[in-house]
């Protein structure tokens, strides 16, 4: 099995696209990092001055009568936090701030993993190399497993690159300032457990990452078309929220994986649907994951190869 993964890994890195993906993941961290640094130095303000300025901005907004109660309380909280910072000399945490910003770039990691998952089986069919691959003393199940594991390892690598490069760029550009992220709980300004939150966020994006990967892998190996697989997976991830909204009248929506695949909904206070909990979501996702895999394996193992 190790040799098979070695093979897949070799083939993967001999494609130029793979290197481009890694380069893009890195670029999409360095680019915004430099831009943020540029604007920061251009303004040339100390953090005290910029906090002062944002307090004034928020106050101006609060003067607007059309503001909803929710927004109003949000801005009031922000003002309280900024005032607390000035009074207690606590600057905001730039490194953690930058990293929670680049956490959004994990979408890119998921996208690229989906591309690899979609094409790793279907490309063998479209180039005809599948005939060479399957006339070996290795069962089809092992070949498919090696491809699945390779995709997963590639995805994890992109994750590590994202986190690693973010931390590095953040450290170089913004330095390890000793500040802290603040939030208001029960009217009290308290220090946020920012690193815990960040790690939790990275973990939760794993839900969408795994489900998208398995779905793309399924479509790619059943229909042998990478474009269909990438297109369908992307379509579902963009419109997933809408589909759930449309279906929300029906009970069945609780049992559709799209409702649950975005686990970051549990970070926020409101989930996409009322009455679902994290353990329930995880159970549903696990069932779908197994289902996707079973269909992929059966179709790959039973198929007559005519490519």
């Amino acid at each position: 099995m190790l040799k098979l993964i070695q093979n897949e890994w070799m083939k993967l890195w001999h494609k130029k696209g793979t290197w481009a993906m890694v380069a893009l993941v890195i670029l999409f961290i360095i680019g915004p990092g430099i831009m943020m640094k540029y604007y920061e130095t251009k303004e040339g303000n100390t953090w005290q001055e910029s906090e002062q300025q944002s307090i004034e901005n928020y106050k101006e907004i609060l003067n607007d009568d059309n503001l909803s109660a929710e927004d109003k309380s949000y801005y009031e909280e922000q003002i309280a936090i900024s005032e607390y910072r000035l009074a207690n000399d606590v600057p905001s945490q730039d490194l953690a701030g930058f990293m929670s910003f680049t956490g959004n770039m994990l979408t890119l990691v998921t996208l690229f993993t989906v591309i690899v998952a979609a094409s790793i089986v279907s490309s063998e069919f479209s180039t005809g190399t599948i005939k060479m691959l399957l006339t070996r003393p290795v069962s089809r199940a092992k070949i498919l497993t090696s491809k699945l594991l390779t995709t997963f390892i590639f995805g994890l690598l992109l994750y590590v690159v994202n986190v690693g490069v973010s931390a590095l760029v953040g450290l170089i550009l913004f330095g390890g300032t000793t500040g802290a992220e603040l939030e208001i709980i029960n009217g009290q300004v308290v220090e946020k457990a920012v690193w815990n939150d960040l790690a939790y966020h990275y973990l939760l994006t794993g839900g969408d990452f795994v489900m998208s990967m398995l779905f793309a892998f399924l479509v790619g190996s059943v229909f042998r078309s990478s474009s269909l697989a990438i297109g369908l997976t992307m379509f579902l991830s963009f419109t997933g929220g809408m589909i759930v909204m449309f279906l929300s009248k029906y009970k069945i929506v609780k049992y559709v994986w799209l409702t649950h695949s975005d686990l970051t909904q549990y970070e926020r206070s409101s989930s996409i649907l009322d009455g679902i909990t994290m353990p329930f979501s995880l159970t549903i996702l696990a069932i779908y994951a197994v289902l996707f895999l079973v269909i992929s394996y059966i179709s790959f193992m039973k198929r007559d190869v005519t490519a």
Binding site: Q6, T129, M132, L133, T135
Partner: peptide
């Protein structure tokens, strides 16, 4: 069994040697 089914389709983006290495690992 050794097989050549129709045109031998190889991984074009790799060298000939890497292709052979790839198949050798499967035996």
């Amino acid at each position: 069994v050794g097989v050549i089914v129709e045109n031998p389709e190889m991984y074009k983006f790799m060298t000939g040697y890497k292709n052979l290495l790839h198949f050798a690992r499967m035996h």
